[in-house]
């Protein structure tokens, strides 16, 4: 009787999701595996053999990975500082972290256009300081997409890490210190290993976010530096190549699931160890 209730309560939500998300996904991607009646992967082998598409795929991976690494490097010390601050300061810092997260990605990318543009803040500053003779092309580069993506997703990394670091008992750090570890050593030997679950969550969120973001690569990379998500839009809306877009959609879903699966399995392994 209890179980019947549970299924009944979940039914409306599940039906909507299955009918308008899962079925549409299947109806788009299943045909890409069919050649007449037989199963085929030729659309996918063609995709990766085509140097233009291959390049876009590799660029998407590269941007996402570099974004994850930079977010981790910037996020870990910041999150540690936030988690160890007193209640009032922590509240302010968390609000400062969440605010960008709730701000429209168009606005946040636009900010970087004003900074990186040909007549942007950075070029002007460099010109004024006589460090460069003429404006450099900073926009519509992979670098611009990476900076924009880090800007977009760093708050996610910080928030995931703070959640875990807050729960690391302060006494563990003190215990390490009392046993002769300097503050830096105590951080690397105790705090960092114990933050791994938060780091993993953060990496998954940042990677999947960066790999599927549309606004930032569109505004900061344009048609020069396409990624999978801008490619899918171009194929549908500009080229009308829906079959091609479905192939890209499959690749994006599979990449996202593979990365999540791998990282989560890693996390489970670490958990077994007793953390």
């Amino acid at each position: 009787m209890k179980k019947k209730w549970a299924y009944l309560l979940m039914a409306p939500g599940l039906i909507v999701i299955v009918a308008f998300l899962i079925i549409p996904i299947l109806s788009s991607i299943l045909p890409t595996f069919h050649d007449g009646d037989s199963l085929t992967f030729s659309s996918y082998t063609d995709f990766f053999k085509d140097s233009y598409y291959n390049q876009i795929f590799m660029r998407t991976l590269r941007i996402s990975i570099i974004t994850v690494v930079i977010c981790a490097i910037l996020g870990v010390p910041t999150a540690y500082f936030v988690s160890k601050s007193n209640k009032k300061i922590r509240g302010i810092l968390i609000a400062c972290t969440i605010f960008p997260l709730l701000t429209n990605s168009v606005i946040r990318s636009f900010a970087w256009i004003t900074i990186l543009g040909r007549n942007g803040v950075l070029n002007n500053a460099l010109l004024t300081l006589n460090l460069i003779a003429e404006p450099k092309r900073l926009l519509y580069t992979e670098g611009a997409i990476i900076v924009g993506s880090v800007y977009l997703f760093l708050p996610l990394m910080i928030v995931s890490l703070v959640g875990v670091m807050e729960n690391i008992e302060g006494e563990l750090f003190e215990a390490a210190e009392s046993l002769g570890a300097s503050k830096i050593k105590a951080f690397f030997k105790v705090i960092l290993p114990l933050s791994v679950p938060g780091l993993i969550v953060g990496c998954v969120l940042v990677f999947t976010g960066a790999a599927s973001a549309y606004t930032t690569p569109q505004l900061l990379g344009g048609n020069r530096k396409m990624v999978l998500s801008t490619l899918i839009y171009q194929q549908t809306m500009t080229l009308g190549d829906w079959y091609g877009a479905s192939v890209v959609a499959t690749i994006m879903i599979v990449t996202s699931i593979l990365v999540m699966g791998t990282i989560n399995r890693l996390a489970a392994k670490l958990n077994e160890r007793g953390v």
């Binding site: 008992e169 006494e171 563990l172 003190e174 215990a175 390490a176 210190e177 009392s178 046993l179 002769g180 570890a181 300097s182 503050k183 050593k185 105590a186 105790v190 290993p193 114990l194 160890r273 007793g274 953390v275």
Partner: peptide, 20 residues
């Protein structure tokens, strides 16, 4: 003198064993 140079043994209320 900083904590890590004192060489005192401390047993914490929560034990503070390193879970990893």
């Amino acid at each position: 003198i900083p904590v890590h140079k004192r060489n005192f043994g401390i047993v914490f209320q929560s034990y503070a064993l390193f879970p990893h």
